[in-house]
């Protein structure tokens, strides 16, 4: 189940080969437990445009010291 924009970069998997038998598997698993099956079309409503975001300072770093 992928929502790529036509780019190789978004065709991702968690484990090798599993992309080969993804189709429909998620919905069936959900149905087996009686939960309503989902669509994922709306994910694409997440807007592109990352340059509008401010830079985010990282945690866990320190100035380098020659003494190590």
């Amino acid at each position: 189940m992928k929502t790529d924009q036509g780019s190789q970069n978004t065709e991702v998997t968690d484990r090798p080969d599993r992309r080969n038998f993804l189709s429909g598997a998620g919905s069936l698993a959900i149905t087996a437990l009686g939960v309503t099956a989902l669509g994922n079309e709306n994910i694409n409503k997440i807007n592109k445009g990352p340059k509008e975001l401010p830079l985010h300072e990282a945690d866990f770093y320190a100035p380098h010291s020659e003494a190590g």
Partner: peptide, 25 residues
């Protein structure tokens, strides 16, 4: 950047999907 460590991909995912839990696995 100027002595500050910046997490450049914060809030900038390149992949967003809905998966079955079993895929993680």
């Amino acid at each position: 950047l100027d002595g500050k460590l910046i997490a450049t991909t914060f809030a900038r995912p390149s992949s967003v999907h809905i998966d079955p839990m079993e895929k993680k696995p």
